[in-house]
């Protein structure tokens, strides 16, 4: 699976925030096998250089975000700054529409995606499962979609399975990453079983009691879910069907 022409070694993208310490973050990255790290830009307060050195040592692709931006204009300016800082055209585009749900603002998102795609950015839009919006984002030049599982940091898993399944089916060839809301490895496995190409998470690992162990658990779940997808699972049935042969059963 290619993300803007880049083949990734792992289907997990991992955030760099909220870990108890930089050492634990490094450990979590190693155990997760994540191929992409999300990063942000914040006001210089003297700690930026240290973080930059740690993140570069991870040896993974960097995906800067526009987290916290509530307008297309803010997000576009942040993306331009991120491109200079991180020397990548990749941008995880977040335009937040509501501060309680951190739900994407679909109108601002599309507006910013159009502007940034025209400037050569490779946009990873944090979006809802809305199919119409998805089509508009693709028309704007996005070649990857990042539908939410549930609100950021909620750990609720896949909130709208039907909608996500419909989105996957509507655009079978578009790389899609479930971004946000995952809480447990089973959520990640389910996303992969549904045919999504990757997951992006942060809080579920960083805020676990043992982040490195949870990173390992998520890595295995992603692998298991993907294998299950490739193995073509059976269809569920309402009634029981005996698995042991009926023929040859003793008459007792």
């Amino acid at each position: 699976m290619l993300f803007y022409g880049t083949e990734l070694s792992s289907r997990m993208m991992l955030g760099t925030a909220q870990y108890p310490s930089p050492a634990i973050m490094e450990d979590a990255f190693r155990r997760s096998g994540a191929s992409v790290a999300t990063v942000s830009l914040r006001r210089e307060g003297g700690r930026g250089q240290g973080f930059w050195d740690i993140v570069r040592k991870l040896g993974v692709h960097l995906l800067p975000n526009t987290a916290g931006c509530h307008s297309a204009r803010e997000a576009v300016t942040t993306a331009r700054m991120a491109r200079e800082m991180f020397e990548t055209n990749w941008i995880k585009l977040e335009v937040i529409g509501h501060s309680d749900t951190l739900q994407p603002d679909p109108f601002g998102l599309l507006d910013a995606a159009e502007t940034l795609s025209a400037e050569g950015f490779e946009v990873f839009p944090y979006t809802t499962e809305d199919q119409v919006l998805a089509q508009r984002l693709l028309d704007a030049g996005c070649k990857v979609l990042m539908p939410w599982g549930a609100p950021i940091g909620s750990g609720l898993g896949l909130n709208n399975r039907h909608g996500l399944r419909m989105l996957r089916a509507a655009f079978p060839d578009v790389p899609m990453v479930i971004d946000a809301g995952l809480g447990l490895p089973s959520h990640a496995a389910e996303a992969m079983e549904m045919g999504f190409d990757a997951i992006l998470l942060n809080t579920a690992i960083a805020q676990a009691g043992d982040p490195a162990l949870m990173a390992c658990a998520f890595a295995r779940a992603v692998e298991a879910g993907r294998m299950a997808r490739d193995a073509d699972p059976m269809s569920p049935r309402d009634m029981a069907v005996p698995s042991t042969p009926v023929i040859g059963k003793a008459w007792l």
Binding site: T16, Q18, V39, R43, E44, F51, V55, P64, I152
Partner: peptide, 10 residues
């Protein structure tokens, strides 16, 4: 003026 630097992000 905004002066920004790399920081943790999700």
């Amino acid at each position: 003026i905004e002066v920004l630097t790399p920081m943790q992000g999700g």
